[in-house]
Amino acid sequence: MNSMYFTEEHNLFRKSLQDFLKKEVVPNIETWEKTGKIDRFIWKKFGDMGFFGINYPEAYGGLNLDLFYTIILQEELQKINSGGFAAAIWAHVYLAMTHLNAEGDEDIKQKYLVPSIAGDKIGCLCITEPSGGSDVAGMRTTAIKEGDYYVVNGSKTFITNGIYSDYLVVAAKTSPELGNKGMSIFVVDRDTVGISATKLDKLGWRASDTAEIAFDNVKIPASNLLGEENQGFAYIMQHFSLERLVMGVNAHARAEYALEYALNYMSERTTFGKALDTYQALRHKFVDLYADMEICKEYNYSVTNRLNKGEYVVKEATISKLKSTKMADEVIYECMQFLGGYGYMEEYPMARLLRDSRLGPIGGGTSEILREILSKMIIDKKEYKPAT
């Protein structure tokens, strides 16, 4: 492991996490992949082990560790070959909980963040809409203030943990006439009257519950506002750094897993009396793929290091997601080819890996949207600044 970024404590944490996943998670993966529902007990076990609180304050039950512990968690989750399970975990920890910690007041943190870290509550983040996709600024969901309440109307889609979560972190327009400058963020209890959810059937990420959610005159207390009114877009942009970096790390980790599996298979599989890993054409293809993975991994570690120091790395994290997810798709596609017909069989990992990986260039902002964002930053010299 790269000693520039990982200490002995990091390595010990990785080993304990690997042991935990092997014992508690791996035996259940096939069931969760088939049912599309992750058993509730595992959330509590993650909480008891402290995995949900890795980079959250000790005052709320967290461990306040550096971001490389987060990287380890993401990497190891990818190597149990269930993109859906991994997504459910990181959508809770690094999407919903990020907003609670950064924008929530003390009451909100006690009510939602503390039980989230403990594994007693599950959260989801509701930004994407049926009509808008990656166009966050084009959001139509509204939250209009009426006395001590906001009334929310609209819909969200492709929401990970959208069925079984206990609360929702919701973005809505509080001042629609201001466009993206009129957006706010709220935390909403799942059982609030007027919320309904429909489960979506997906190509991959089968273990996770993904939903379309409707809000029909949903009344939420004004105290459930996260941060300041009309500052939601700035908050979302600020946290995109971590979300996109996480997706970049996920991508290099699943590519690494695919390469490790393929190499082991190639060393054991023989044709015409020779192991597959002795054929020059396959050897050269493999090392090209390995090099692409290593380049992305090292870049992602570098961005993590900068984010860990508090730097504003929206551009770099966007590059991470754009290039790493593309790389992972290409690596896994070729690794399936290395396995030949067996790569196409469900009992081998490549079929699921291929399905799960394909969401990488789509979710959390499509590659096309990311290229346009980067074009504005690199070519047009547009500057995005942290929320104040």
Rank of each mutant, 00 (worst) to 15 (best):
Y56T: 01
F85Y: 11
I89A: 08
T70C: 07
A87W: 04
H92Q: 06
H92I: 00
Y94Q: 10
T70Q: 15
A59T: 14
F85W: 01
T98R: 13
N55F: 06
N81W: 15
Y69Q: 01
I71Y: 09
Q78L: 10
Y94P: 04
F85Q: 02
M97Q: 12
F68C: 04
W90Y: 15
Q74I: 14
V93D: 07
Y56C: 00
N64T: 05
Q74G: 12
E75A: 11
W90G: 00
T70D: 15
E76T: 06
K79T: 12
S82W: 07
A87L: 14
L73D: 05
A96Y: 03
T70Y: 07
G61P: 01
N81P: 09
E75S: 13
H99N: 12
L100N: 04
H92G: 02
A91S: 15
G62E: 00
Y56L: 10
G62N: 02
G83F: 07
E58M: 14
Y56S: 02
F68N: 08
A87E: 13
S82V: 11
L73S: 05
G62Y: 01
G84E: 04
L65Q: 12
D66M: 09
N55P: 05
E58V: 14
Y94M: 11
Q78A: 15
G61K: 06
N55C: 10
Q74Y: 13
I72R: 08
K79F: 10
A96G: 05
L77K: 10
D66G: 09
I71L: 12
S82A: 08
L95R: 14
N55T: 11
Q74A: 15
L77I: 06
F68P: 03
Y56V: 00
Y56Q: 01
N55E: 08
Q74F: 13
E76A: 08
G83A: 10
E76W: 00
P57W: 08
A88D: 08
P57H: 06
L67G: 02
H92L: 01
L100G: 03
L77V: 04
E76D: 07
L65K: 15
F68V: 01
I80M: 11
F85L: 10
D66E: 14
K79Y: 07
G83C: 12
A96H: 03
G83Y: 01
A88W: 00
L63Y: 07
G61W: 08
Q78S: 12
G83Q: 03
A86M: 13
E75D: 14
W90R: 12
K79Q: 15
N64L: 07
F68M: 09
A88Q: 10
A88V: 10
F85H: 03
Q78Y: 09
N64E: 14
I71E: 07
F68Q: 06
N55R: 11
G62D: 00
F68G: 04
E58T: 14
G83V: 09
G84T: 01
E76L: 13
M97A: 03
H92T: 04
G83P: 07
N55L: 03
H92F: 05
A59G: 10
L77Y: 12
Y69R: 01
L67T: 02
N55M: 04
